[in-house]
């Protein structure tokens, strides 16, 4: 089942001369994990915001083509309606805290209150989300007193509690220290094993190699490639797009160790071990 259909999406910010997205088309199936990579300014964040309707409803600007998410046509739907289908988590954990709530527990409730859920339903969802993100024990803390990694997990929990079918993560670890990043990746692991449809922009390419079913490579507002990670990462011109292949791919390429079956360079540690094993 298709969860996201982007068809020839073109978009220009109101203050900009150039298109930030120049005719993107892609389809994402239920339960898939899509990694989004590309250099700075490629349009990754813009694409993310187009999936949740911030583009065009929040930013305005010039919009062409169409995006359908969870059955809703973005252009014709309000952000609050889209929020029930697709959630967004972005870089800065601090600005994702509403500031209106005094505890972690109440912070998660914010979105649910806006949905008008009844109390029992809210409590059930909040408990579940906090447990899933492993921050239940901080439920009575002030959100601003959490560490970066905890705060970012709170942001994810707040989105999860709204039960969207899809979660978009735009560089969720880029402002975190290594420990915080690890915490967030562990959370992403969990979401993936829950079978959520996920779209994640991430510079730590090894993580994309580990999780992604497909990788979208963006550059200059265009979709350069949209394929299985092993295919995208073995592009000889990858570095031209400001993306370094995963470390295992680079090592295997230097050593000319290819996967026997595919004839491509492995992208994960497991893949590399298997490829080396098949040499003997």
């Amino acid at each position: 089942m298709k969860k996201i259909i982007v068809d020839n999406l073109k978009y220009r910010y109101p203050s900009a001369q150039e298109l930030a997205l120049k005719g993107i088309s892609l389809e994402i199936e239920k339960g898939q994990f899509i990694g989004v990579i590309g250099p700075n300014g490629a349009g990754k964040s813009t694409l993310c915001q187009a999936l949740v309707g911030l583009v065009p409803h929040f930013y305005h600007g010039a919009y062409g083509g169409s995006v359908v998410v969870g059955g809703l046509e973005v252009l014709k739907s309000e952000i609050s309606a889209l929020a029930l289908k697709v959630g967004l988590v972005f870089q800065n954990p601090f600005t994702q805290v509403t500031g209106a709530k005094l505890t972690v527990y109440d912070e998660v409730a914010f979105g649910l209150e806006n949905m008008g859920l009844d109390r029992a339903e809210m409590i059930e969802r909040i408990d579940r989300a906090l447990t899933l993100l492993d921050i239940y024990r901080y439920k009575d803390r002030n959100p601003f007193d959490l560490s970066g990694g905890q705060m970012q997990r709170l942001a994810i929990a707040s989105i999860i509690a709204m039960k969207p079918q899809i979660i978009v993560l735009d560089e969720p670890t880029s402002q975190l220290d290594p420990q915080g990043s690890e915490e967030v990746f562990r959370a992403v692991d969990k979401l993936k094993s829950e079978g959520m449809t996920l779209v994640m922009v991430e510079h730590k390419i090894e993580k994309i190699a580990e999780y992604a079913d497909k990788v979208a490579l963006l550059s200059g507002g265009e979709l350069v490639d949209f394929d299985r990670p092993i295919r995208v990462f073995s592009r000889p011109d990858l570095e031209r797009f400001g993306v370094a292949a995963p470390v295992y791919t680079r090592i295997c390429r230097d050593l000319k160790i290819k996967d026997e079956k595919t004839g491509l360079y492995p992208i994960t540690l497991e893949g590399a071990v298997a490829a080396v094993g098949s040499l003997e």
Binding site: I79, T95, N114, G116
Partner: peptide, 20 residues
């Protein structure tokens, strides 16, 4: 950024809000 965060948490929803 914070107003974006509010939007994606349905702050502009027109329906009746509830309270935890």
């Amino acid at each position: 950024e914070r107003s974006i965060a509010l939007e994606v948490r349905g702050f502009s929803a027109k329906g009746k809000k509830s309270f935890l």
